[in-house]
């Protein structure tokens, strides 16, 4: 994987700069052609650049990893939209919680169920369970269930990307056009990536979505915790 290539690009700051530049360009591209998801164009461009310049991913990540580290604080920062929307949507909050709870439970059951029906190993099934919630939460949930955090991260990213590209269209197709419903559905299924793309088009959708994704993150961790406690209570530990 890592080729022993001589290259001049070794300073982490350069990789931070590279990531920022790719991001800025992809946002500009998105403003011009709205259907190009900035995350998709940015990552494709970055993968291409690393490949052309013979930069191993491991050395890119000495700088790029800074952004990954910031995902933790970014999750905590969700408290602000949650607080603001929670106050604004006080009357709907219990109903929204119920809706998101149902979505999270259905998501975990279908993700695990379909993966195991398709013959995935137990470890892969556990890695699939938290795929609907934002990366820093999903990785920790996956670890607590003895899944593979890298596989989980891959599924989380692809789910978020796919959901933010096709989610609003599918909901329009089944005649669910309301901002609150779209926000709740995209937030619960496509977490931060979906929320970020909704924010670019509608404040209301984005706000409901950020509340929904934070709730989904909490509910999914609680459900995973209960699953773990159940296994521990049976005294058998994990069933493998």
């Amino acid at each position: 994987m890592i080729r022993p290539t001589l290259h001049l690009f070794t300073h982490p700051a350069l990789y931070i700069l590279l990531t920022l530049a790719v991001y800025a360009l992809s946002l500009r591209l998105h403003r011009r052609w709205a259907w190009i998801h900035p995350l998709l164009s940015a990552s494709v461009a970055l993968i291409f650049l690393l490949w052309v310049l013979h930069i191993p991913y491991a050395s890119y990540n000495t700088g790029g990893g800074v952004f990954t580290t910031l995902l933790g604080p970014a999750t905590v920062a969700l408290g602000v939209p949650m607080y603001k929307q929670g106050i604004k949507l006080k009357a709907t909050l219990p109903r929204l919680s119920l809706v998101v709870f149902a979505g999270s439970a259905v998501g975990m059951v279908t993700a695990g169920g379909v993966a195991s029906l398709c013959g995935a190993s137990h470890r892969m099934v556990m890695s699939a369970l938290p795929k609907s919630v934002t990366t820093p939460i999903a990785i920790e949930v996956s670890r607590s269930l003895h899944g593979d955090p890298a596989i989980t991260a891959a599924m989380v990213l692809l789910t978020g990307l796919l959901g933010s590209v096709i989610g609003p269209g599918i909901l329009r197709l089944v005649r669910i056009p309301h901002d609150h419903a779209v926000g709740a559905a995209v937030g619960a299924s496509s977490h931060a990536i979906g929320t970020a793309s909704l924010f670019r088009s509608s404040e209301v959708r984005g706000s409901v979505s950020s509340l929904a994704m934070a709730l989904a993150g909490i509910f999914t961790s609680v459900l995973a915790m209960l699953l773990n406690l159940y296994w521990r209570a049976r005294g058998a530990g994990h069933p493998w």
């Binding site: 790029g64 952004f67 990954t68 990213l157």
Partner: peptide, 17 residues
């Protein structure tokens, strides 16, 4: 926090790569 939340897409780029 709005800065972090609004640019969350940026934070996913290294993982995607």
């Amino acid at each position: 926090s709005l800065l972090l939340v609004r640019h969350m897409t940026l934070l996913f780029i290294p993982l995607m790569a």
